[in-house]
Computed example of a mutant assay.
Amino acid sequence: MARTKYKFNNRASLNRLIDEYFERSKNDTDNTAEPITVTGLALYLGFTSKDAFDEYEQIGYHKVFIQRARFRVMAYYESRLHYPAPTGAMFALKSMGWADKFKASKVGGKAKLLTVKLIESGPRPASAEKEVVL
């Protein structure tokens, strides 16, 4: 990895910048701050490309702090799933490796099946209007 000069020299300055990035959106009462994003975080930390950010996250000296920051971005998107229109958050999480596919859980190496038995109670519903008795 080529040596690039970022805004942080040590763990404390990196943590301070990460916290600043998240705090500026949290304290935004006028809704004028940019939303929390991985790209926004990378730019705030001084990275000039997604590849450089991803590479630093994988092998950089402070990779654990970058990984935790990315996880905070995911937590932000996950919280947005509870809003009325979560489509954008869903898209972002899927692009970060989340999936909406059903995965069967296994217990003792075997798939766990759920069986539902419907039990009728009360009178049988009418199949036509003329069967209704008032």
Rank of each mutant, 00 (worst) to 15 (best):
A2W: 04
A2S: 08
R3G: 07
R3M: 13
T4F: 06
K5N: 08
K7D: 06
F8W: 12
F8Q: 04
N10I: 04
N10C: 04
A12C: 10
S13T: 15
N15C: 13
N15E: 15
R16E: 11
L17D: 00
I18K: 03
I18H: 01
E20V: 02
F22I: 00
E23A: 13
E23Q: 13
K26Q: 11
D28L: 03
T29W: 02
T32Y: 03
A33S: 11
P35R: 06
T39G: 02
L45H: 00
S49E: 03
S49D: 04
K50T: 14
K50F: 00
D51V: 14
F53C: 03
F53L: 02
D54T: 12
E55F: 05
E55G: 01
E55L: 10
E55Y: 05
Y56N: 14
Q58S: 12
Q58K: 13
G60T: 03
G60I: 05
G60P: 02
Y61C: 11
Y61S: 14
Y61T: 15
H62N: 13
K63Y: 04
F65M: 14
Q67D: 06
R70T: 13
R72L: 14
R72D: 14
V73L: 06
A75D: 08
Y76F: 13
Y77I: 06
S79R: 10
L81S: 02
L81H: 03
Y83P: 00
A85Q: 10
P86E: 03
T87C: 09
G88T: 12
F91P: 04
F91L: 15
K94P: 00
S95H: 06
S95I: 05
S95W: 00
M96D: 05
K103S: 09
G108C: 01
K110A: 13
K112V: 11
L113S: 07
L113W: 00
V116S: 04
I119C: 03
E120D: 06
S121A: 12
G122R: 01
P123L: 14
A126C: 13
A126Q: 08
A128H: 06
E129K: 11
K130H: 09
K130C: 07
K130T: 07
V133G: 01
L134M: 09
L134A: 11
